[in-house]
Design a binder for these strands. Structure first.
Lengths: 210, 210
DNA sequence: TTCTTTTCCCCCTCTTTGGGTTAGTTTTGG
DNA sequence: CCAAAACTAACCCAAAGAGGGGGAAAAGAA
């Protein structure tokens, strides 16, 4: 086995059974090597830089500093290392935050062993491992709520407001009068039961009206 | 040529050159047949049901009713027809929303002819929006630009601004003075070379700083 | 026709924004 | 440890914008 060509994998996971199970699996796969295993981010921070992994498997729910919080810190310690999030949950928010925080991929803990190894290989080659289930969830999150109380024009105007544009600018771009935009906004606020821009944007996004 | 075995393709695209180009290309490929071509959704709505296509190539930016708006209407008219989105720009959000609304795939208009035909074949065989290519795109679209000129605090404040909150409210929620928020915003504007909220949000989103 | 949507008008007050300039404290990196 | 960067805060100003009150005409769809 040529040590220098192996993909070096680190595991940060508090559950010993899972941690050792993954380590055993990966350590016994040709082309892969365990660079280190740690029960928490605090432990990992001490040694992970000299252990120098190519890929880190990171549990989202760690004791102390959570995986989500640890993500940017790990990225800073090891900018070129790919991080794959491990979680039992498959929740939208968590996925978005993980991906937005620099994770290269996302795996649920019940993923089959072969797929875990395949995912590690994939991220080192520049891809992102994403199960069809997760992909479907992410894509469906872009779906609008069809039972919006807002009319087409109101939705359009609220979208523009959400980009930070002024009422005047929206009026100009939609070729309508400023007063018309104001009227629409009054109706939007009434329908969403809010009294400010920020609350309208939040209410609309929460309900997927925009 | 056995008419009944051909894959029937419809094109909804306002640009005549592109429309006829695609029609010529597909019509002259063995196994494919043009079921109809239309310059707008309004035109398509009149005849597309009796033209009965297996696959529809749909432009995102149509005059009148846009492609995005047309998608659910087409799905309702022809529930079993696969729809492939056509776009000039790589408008990620638009593409994702399309996928969420029932599109089976997307193609940019400069795609090579062979790939267009391949994409049509793929969707008729069940390859949908969960292809590795699309999944990769989803992940990369959530990745922040690591070489942001903005500091952590500036990014945080710009994110808050992007939600429509006032400076006062941001100051309160971050437990800092309004004047501090103003200072940060001045620095943000200077760094992004903009002079307004809307422009800062756009510049930051375009560059994936937020 | 009737209802909804879209359009536009007037009034008002108060908040917010963008910009100029300076400066102390804290954190971070070499 | 020291210097640079980041974060914090203060003062000034004019202009623009936001939110809310009321009303009403025109266009479209049901």
């Amino acid at each position: 086995m040529q040590r220098d060509l192996d993909i070096r994998v680190a595991i940060i996971e508090d559950d010993e059974t899972i941690r050792e199970g993954y380590a055993f699996l990966i350590g016994n796969t040709t082309g892969y090597k365990i660079a280190g295993t740690y029960p928490s981010f605090e432990e990992a921070a001490k040694k992970i830089v000299q252990d120098d992994p190519d890929v880190i498997l990171l549990d989202v729910e760690l004791p102390g500093i959570s995986g989500i919080e640890a993500l940017p810190k790990l990225k800073k310690l090891l900018p070129d290392t790919h991080i794959i999030i491990l979680t039992v949950y498959e929740q939208e928010m968590l996925i978005f935050r993980s991906l937005g925080n620099g994770a290269a991929g996302y795996l649920t803990k019940n993923t089959q062993p072969e797929k875990i190894v395949a995912a590690i290989k994939e991220v080192t080659e520049g891809g992102g491992p994403m199960s069809a289930h997760v992909a479907r969830m992410v894509i469906s999150s872009f779906k609008r709520n069809e039972s919006t109380p807002l009319t087409r024009r109101e939705t359009e105007i609220l979208e523009q407001i959400a980009t930070g544009k002024s009422r005047k600018r929206i009026a100009d771009e939609l070729f309508i009068d400023l007063e018309t935009v104001k009227s629409h906004i009054k109706n939007i606020y009434y329908k969403l039961d809010v009294h400010s821009k920020a609350d309208a944007i939040k209410a609309a996004k929460d309900n997927k009206f925009i």
